[in-house]
Amino acid sequence: MTRRELLLSLSAAGAVAPLAYAQGNTTMRYTALALQTVCDAVNQDATIEDAHARMDRAIARVRGQIGSAKGFLKGFNGYDVKLVVLPEYWMTGFPLGETREEWQNKAAIPMDGAFPDKLAKLAQIFGIYLCSNHYETDPNFPDLYFQANVIYGPSGDVVLRYRRMISLYTPSPYDVWDKYLDTYGEDAVFPVADTEIGVLGSVASEEILYPEIARMHVFKGAEILCHPTSEVGAPTLTPKHISKKARAVENIAYVVSANSAEIIGTPVPSASTDAMSIVLDPYGRTLAEAGSGETLNANAVLDIGALRETRRKTGMTNTLSRLPNTAFASGYAGANHAPANRTPNGQMIERAEAIAQQQAVIDRLAAAGILK
């Protein structure tokens, strides 16, 4: 592809579309990139050593892609790339037939160690906030792994660690709720990071379908919702794609959503997850959206000053200021159909047991008259 063709493709994707609402009073503007990159899955690897070598290659590939995006986009629109969101489980793919213990050993990285150090180094080298979704272990829960959105800052420090709360098959903090709160406290459940590029929050994958997840982060001040995902690409709107727009509108927030370019190395057709990486403004409008394949086209300039000005305006569109939260409180408090502590002993459960527990919740909803 020539430079001219690339410029045209970026323009067609909306990457250079101007913000359509009033510019803010500050100069807090920068480029955010939802990097649509291939996931080379470790399911094909017979040994832990082979899987970790493949993960190292993924880091090296993404390092080159971020570096080229930094250089090209600064020259293209004049704004530095300061936020990069990677797709869901971009280093490993997802378990296909492996037991939970096998996947923990093969694909989950520690909170501290060689792999997180390499991710932190990427953020440090390029002076960016880097949002990575990966599986990780935790010494406080040695028999489990979690799917985490971890944001590394330009200093190399972890500025945010969010563990996916809603997951059918992967362990979540809600499964060991009492111990998790005792260990980390409530502030760690829906964390945000107040940074020089705005207040960052994160949503994992299909959690974009649940308005409560995004809202909990926004209630703590989140202005940009980083959304690593690996989802079915389609030429029409999908439930997740609709939900991304809804989360932006109802929270007056930017959404930066990165999808896999494809997943190779599994029996699943590789392009089943492809395209649809997107950057949305606080009105749910598309600033940039990627087509298929590995691409940096899902990038846009975020104007945090304009967002803050919008959130402070009166009028019907200021949804955050008009929420009658007290009216919802009793309804949420009484709707304990999916109770916490699914695995109170901190042990792994397999897929069949997870499905059986879901069926029990559906039965309770039916018994309560919620489902007919």
Rank of each mutant, 00 (worst) to 15 (best):
G315M: 07
I224E: 05
A335G: 15
E212A: 14
Q124L: 00
D143G: 12
K121P: 05
A34F: 02
G221Y: 01
S9A: 10
R247F: 05
Y145L: 13
V232S: 06
R285K: 12
L237I: 09
R163P: 06
I304P: 15
P87W: 01
Q104K: 12
A327E: 14
R63I: 04
F190Q: 06
H217W: 00
N297S: 00
R3W: 02
W177P: 00
A204M: 09
A222C: 09
I208N: 10
G369I: 01
R54N: 15
T92L: 10
G233W: 00
G346E: 12
R247G: 13
P87R: 07
T195K: 03
Y169L: 11
T295L: 00
K372V: 14
I278P: 03
G221L: 04
T2D: 14
L83D: 05
V84E: 05
V176K: 00
R311T: 06
T295E: 03
N140D: 15
N133C: 10
S243L: 03
V42T: 10
S172K: 04
P95N: 08
L168A: 11
T183E: 14
T229K: 11
A258Y: 01
A354Y: 01
Y332F: 15
N341F: 08
R308Y: 01
C39I: 13
G221N: 06
K74H: 07
T319D: 14
S155F: 00
V38E: 12
